[in-house]
Design a protein around this nucleic acid. Structure first.
Length: 704
DNA sequence: AGCCAGACTTAGTACATGGCGA
DNA sequence: TCGCCATGTACTAAGTCTGGCT
């Protein structure tokens, strides 16, 4: 069953209320002026369309859609979906168009009132039960088979691939899934080395998916009556709807943007939509609103929370952990995987980055009726809160998301997906395998600039490579032999992963030697799987390639064997920085930069003093322990100095992005192994999880 | 042939945490 | 033991890519 997220929302003044980081990053300052302009052609219509449809319209149409759906449920899912899509479009035309004049109102004023849909208003779970009973089946391997068969039908061409499919996983399925369910908590099953398995090739992202659904945002808790709101100097009691929205604003009083015109205008407009007609007629000017008591109340709450006893804090922590354990994981293809964001985004005021024209708009509360659940037919379906329904229950294994809903500000779709450490996310690192195979060539013609992406995909021909399942004692060798740009013969043999090898084989299938190896990818000759792989072979590959090769070179250049650990890490960071500069990952110097730099300097000075004192003492007495102390101090000083250099150099450069997204982690891993650097020094926990495959795989002599 | 919804990816920001020195 | 600060994490906005439609 879906649960309500109470969490520690109460005192998180900003994050809950503001729907973005919301700082005034100057980078974005003028963005929207340009942007509005630039996007006019492409996005304008879409934008306008979306925003002008009142929510009620949207709801109407989605409900119709829902009803339709109910009727045709339980049949072939994927085709249904397809049909539905058309339907959706049609409805749009018919129903929504006439309402053009309505401007970006997301919520018809009566929405909340007319619908018994608030989270605390649940009743009569009957209908749901019936529905679920129909759907629910225990783990029947047959079912799985059916699904696979269906897929097969569609993808006959890929027969070969199907054959390669790992049968063992399928066999395991029944037992393991059931197991995982019973005692997933007890047995932290040993690390799954998914990168050593093969993947489906028909575009399906999973074969089995079960999860508990999202954690809903906590319902609104009305303010205690002692907290008052004043309009035009007079106290006024607001109804719960209007009050909730008012609290969003009240929580942000300290922020600059509550002074911004656009923000205030958007907020006020949306706020009024939540008011009763009485409130609406009274409250006509935001300037006359006094939210101070509310603001103070929330501040006090957050203070109180900070001052809580250890015990209470622990309780909260335990509760959070429990939620995480219960809702933070799903089972995908026999494995328990961490979900990245299992909480539904709470309502609040939207604050885009920069001067976003929609800042201040109300981001409305997401109800179960807005939510689409995606999971296996044969899984235990997540239950909506009592008395509510999901908008839709879907079984689409061509996508990776578990839950989605449409957000009301931009009309875009939001998803609940898996953690970066999961197979489905990190698995896109397969990309790496292809890059490895292609690196040579890309390197040879490393022509930077706009054309890079086309260069990469088109000119390597079948005749340029040979594949050897086994050569010179190595398995899966790819032999490259071609004339490079300056008519220099390029010849090299590279052992590759089995998967890469197989994929290359597929690329070459049915082709003449003079055919381009990677052409016609968008035509129907190659199957989707290959296209998927090709996703990677665009500009990103080149970025990746450049980044990685630079890192490797820099690491070679900068690391000297006799350096000590901190110095080596400094070298690593320098190499990383070179890459970040290459990729232009800049950042604004952190706000606290000057201060923390100063602090560090103070520390260094202090150390120096200590050191010279100690040295003097050594001269006087010369005893052993003093010498040791000097050594220790010297080391500490050095460490600090390195840290200072590092930080100074890092002032304007964001390392994270390239590290996480563009650099082949194996380079870093290999470097660490080579020099005996603990991997924790360069990858934090998240990164280690994401790159588990690389850490497992790379040897100290790994070369990109 | 261009558009655009849908599905990812990337990235900025606030907040929580935990380690370390005083 | 306490408080500070660097580091990590959660959250979610924004960007990118693509297939399928018109």
């Amino acid at each position: 069953m879906a649960v309500i997220w109470r969490g520690n929302t109460q005192d998180r003044l900003y994050q809950d209320t503001i729907s973005s980081g919301g700082g005034n990053s100057h980078k974005h300052k003028d963005k929207y002026k340009d942007k509005e302009h630039k996007h006019k052609d492409h996005k304008k219509d879409r934008e306008r369309d979306k925003s002008k449809y009142g929510n009620s319209d949207h709801k109407e149409f989605s409900e119709k859609k829902h009803r339709e759906k109910e009727r045709i449920k339980h049949e072939d899912v994927s085709t249904d979906r397809h049909k539905d899509k058309h339907k959706e479009k049609d409805h749009r035309k018919d129903e929504i168009k006439p309402k053009k004049e309505k401007e970006n109102g997301f919520a018809s004023p009566h929405r909340i009132k007319t619908e018994p849909d608030n989270d605390h208003f649940y009743h009569s779970p009957k209908s749901l039960k019936r529905q679920r009973d129909n759907d629910e089946t225990e783990f029947k391997p047959k079912k799985i088979k059916i699904e696979n068969d269906r897929v097969d039908k569609k993808t006959k061409k890929r027969k070969q691939d199907e054959d390669i499919k790992p049968k063992k996983t399928q066999k395991n399925k029944k037992g393991e899934v059931a197991d995982g369910k019973k005692k997933a908590k007890k047995e932290p099953e040993e690390k799954w080395k998914w990168w050593e398995e093969e993947r489906a090739t028909d575009g399906s992202k999973w074969r089995f998916l079960e999860h508990k659904g999202p954690v809903m945002a906590a319902p609104y808790e009305p303010l205690p009556s002692k907290v008052r709101f004043f309009y035009d100097g007079k106290q006024m009691k607001l109804g719960p709807e209007a009050e909730e929205v008012a609290t969003f604003f009240a929580k942000m009083l300290d922020h600059e943007y509550t002074t911004k015109d656009a923000f205030r205008k958007n907020f006020f407009k949306d706020w009024r939509k939540e008011m009763t007609s009485e409130e609406k007629s009274k409250i006509t000017d935001l300037k006359k609103c006094n939210f101070n008591e509310m603001g103070e109340y929330f501040k006090a709450q957050s203070e109180a929370r900070k001052a809580m006893t250890k015990d209470d804090k622990l309780k909260i922590k335990v509760e959070n952990e429990r939620l995480l354990q219960e809702y933070g994981f799903c089972i995908m293809d026999n494995h328990k995987e961490r979900i990245a964001n299992f909480r539904i985004e709470p309502p609040g005021l939207f604050r885009g980055r920069g001067d976003h024209p929609k800042m201040g708009m109300l981001k409305r509360r997401i109800r179960p009726e807005d939510i689409i659940i995606n999971c296996s037919k044969d899984s235990k379906h997540p239950k909506p809160p009592p008395g509510t329904k999901w908008k839709e229950l879907r079984h689409d294994n061509k996508v990776t998301w578990l839950v989605s809903w449409t957000e009301n500000i931009q009309g875009s779709i939001k998803y609940i997906m898996l953690n970066p450490s999961s197979r489905i996310k990190a698995g896109s690192s397969l990309l790496w395998l292809m890059v490895v195979a292609l690196a040579l060539r890309a390197g040879n013609e490393k022509e930077e600039g706009e054309s890079a992406d086309t260069v990469g995909c088109c000119s390597l021909r079948v005749e340029h490579i040979n594949l050897y399942p086994e050569k010179d004692g190595q398995e899966f060798v790819v032999e490259f032999d071609f004339l490079g740009k300056d008519s220099i013969r390029y010849y090299n043999k590279v052992p590759v992963e089995k998967r890469v090898f197989k994929n290359l084989q597929l690329f070459m299938e049915n082709k003449q030697p003079e055919d381009d190896l990677f052409d016609r990818l968008n035509t129907s000759i190659l199957n989707k799987h290959l296209q998927e792989l090709m996703d990677g072979l665009t500009a990103k590959v080149f970025r990746t390639y450049n980044a990685s090769i630079t890192l490797q070179q820099q690491l070679k250049e900068l690391t000297s064997p006799d350096e000590n650990l901190p110095a080596k890490i400094l070298s690593y960071n320098r190499a990383n920085r070179a890459v970040a500069i290459l990729c232009n990952h800049q950042r604004a110097p952190p706000k606290t930069f000057e201060k923390s730099m100063q602090n560090l300097q103070t520390k260094i000075d202090a150390k120096k003093d200590q050191l010279s004192d100690a040295k003097r003492d050594v001269k006087i007495c010369g005893c052993d322990w003093l010498k040791k102390a000097v050594e220790r101090l010297e080391e500490q000083l050095m460490k600090l100095e390195v840290q200072a250099t590092d930080r100074e150099e890092n002032k304007q450069i964001a390392l994270g992005t390239s590290k996480l997204n563009y650099l082949d982690p194996r380079i870093s891993v290999a470097w660490c192994k080579k020099w005996g650097i603990p991997i924790e020094k360069i990858y934090n926990k998240t990164q280690r999880e994401k790159f588990a495959w690389a850490i497992d795989m790379a040897e100290d002599d790994y070369e990109f």
